[in-house]
């Protein structure tokens, strides 16, 4: 059990952040990451389109466009949080890891606090912000130590 990767996709499908959260995570090159980000972006939209049932207006309870919320694979579990503005926070973990939703919400908070409030950060551009990186690291440490409360 443990977290593997975190990546953030902007509203037009560009990858703005990718990082591994543990040493168990597979090594993936930057080009491969860009491809994964944009593939995920389109599959997110297709998943809602292909479903025989649809939510009213295609909006979920958060008011964001409906799409992939969770994927279960043989050796990986993927959770996606899409905000109202269309940014997708995606985290992957080994099966059986709990608190994925809480962690995604916390990362969204960190993104608004550390990246969006950085005067040098340009919207939709890759996040190169030391404060955000360090905050995610310390969040992960606290989650592993069991200090983050389940909501």
């Amino acid at each position: 059990m443990g977290f593997l990767h975190l990546f953030i996709v902007n509203k037009s499908g560009g990858l703005i952040l990718h990082r591994s959260l543990s040493s168990a995570a597979p090594q993936i090159g930057t080009n491969e990451w860009l491809r994964i980000g944009s593939t995920f972006h389109s599959l997110h939209a297709i998943a809602a389109e292909a479903s025989p049932v649809k939510l009213p207006n295609n909006k979920n309870s958060n008011g964001a466009q409906d799409g992939i919320e969770q994927i279960e694979g043989g050796g990986v579990i993927l959770k996606c949080l899409q905000t109202r503005t269309g940014i997708k926070f995606v985290i992957t973990a080994e099966p059986g890891t709990s608190d994925l939703d809480t962690v995604l919400r916390e990362i969204y908070v960190l993104y608004s606090d550390c990246a969006l409030k950085d005067p040098f950060y340009e919207l939709e551009m890759p996040i190169r912000c030391e404060l955000f990186t360090n905050s995610v690291d310390s969040l992960m440490k606290r989650v592993v130590a069991g200090e983050v409360m389940m909501r």
Partner: peptide, 17 residues
Amino acid sequence: LTPGNGSPALKSVRTGA
């Protein structure tokens, strides 16, 4: 995205609907 020892099978995809 699957780490080395896991099986790469796809089991379920959940959307809001």
